[in-house]
Every structure is written in structure tokens, then in C-alpha cells.
């Protein structure tokens, strides 16, 4: 399982990059969902989001999930290309699979990489 050390993580398996405000779903989440076939971003550029508000809806072959904002702020960018290539969320969740960027983002209740790794391990059983 990949857990980049520079990112922050939520209990609902989103990641947040404090450096540039980017957010998406974690490697653990994409693995749990398995083959993702649909993603819909629920917010547009310029909208404000609050921690816990749904920002995207994801469907895989066998499951569906709502993705929540890990931080509050204004949406400065959305990854428009994602809808055409939902499989990117499986192949590169922390890179090309970013969903939105939140400017001036104040992260909510987030964990660092070590705490998140332990949190995921704890759910494996």
C-alpha cells in the first residue's frame, strides 16, 4: 500500500496535499473499491467547500462511494479529464488521479502518513 509521507489523510480515505491544496482518494480506497468505472465531480471551480461535504461520486464494478472534502476553502481547480479516464483513480490515485484543488484549504481532522498506515492496518481484519 502506497502512503506518501508529504500528504494528510482522512478517516474516510481521502488525501490532501497542504502544499498545493490538491485532494483525492487514497491507494487503500481505490484498492477497496476495485475497478473504478465512473467518477463524477460534484463541485465546480469557484465554489466553496467545507470539510465533509461531498466533492465526488465514484462507482466501481461492485461498489460506490461518496468522496468528501478533506479541507475547507475555495475550489481553485478541478481535474476535468478524470471523468473520461476513471481508471486513473486505480493506477495513479495520488498523481494523475487528483480530483480538486482547494485554495486556502484548512484541513479538517486529518492524520499523517504513519497514523493513516496504522489506521488502514487496523481495518484489514
Amino acid at each position: 500500500m502506497n502512503v506518501p509521507s508529504n500528504l494528510k489523510y482522512t478517516k474516510s480515505d481521502e488525501w490532501f496535499d497542504p502544499a498545493n491544496g490538491a485532494a483525492g482518494i487514497t491507494d487503500y480506497a481505490q484498492n477497496q473499491l476495485s475497478d473504478i468505472v465512473f467518477v463524477e465531480l460534484l463541485v465546480d471551480e469557484g465554489e466553496t467547500v467545507e470539510v465533509g461535504k461531498p466533492i465526488a461520486s465514484v462507482e466501481s464494478v461492485k461498489a460506490s462511494a461518496e468522496i468528501y472534502a478533506p479541507a475547507s476553502g475555495t475550489v481553485s481547480a478541478v481535474n476535468k479529464g478524470l471523468a473520461d479516464k476513471p481508471e486513473t483513480l486505480n493506477s495513479d490515485p495520488f498523481g494523475e488521479g487528483w480530483m480538486i484543488k482547494i485554495a486556502g484549504g484548512n484541513a479538517g481532522d486529518v492524520m499523517d502518513a504513519d497514523a493513516y498506515t496504522a489506521y488502514c492496518d487496523g481495518r484489514a481484519h
Partner: peptide
């Protein structure tokens, strides 16, 4: 196909 849209997975959503 696309069964994750349906009620048995998506439930109240």
C-alpha cells in the same frame, strides 16, 4: 453492467 448505480449497492443515494 454499471450495477453500482443501483439500489442494492447505492442504497439511499
Amino acid at each position: 453492467t454499471l450495477t453500482a448505480r443501483e439500489q442494492h449497492i447505492k442504497r439511499e443515494r
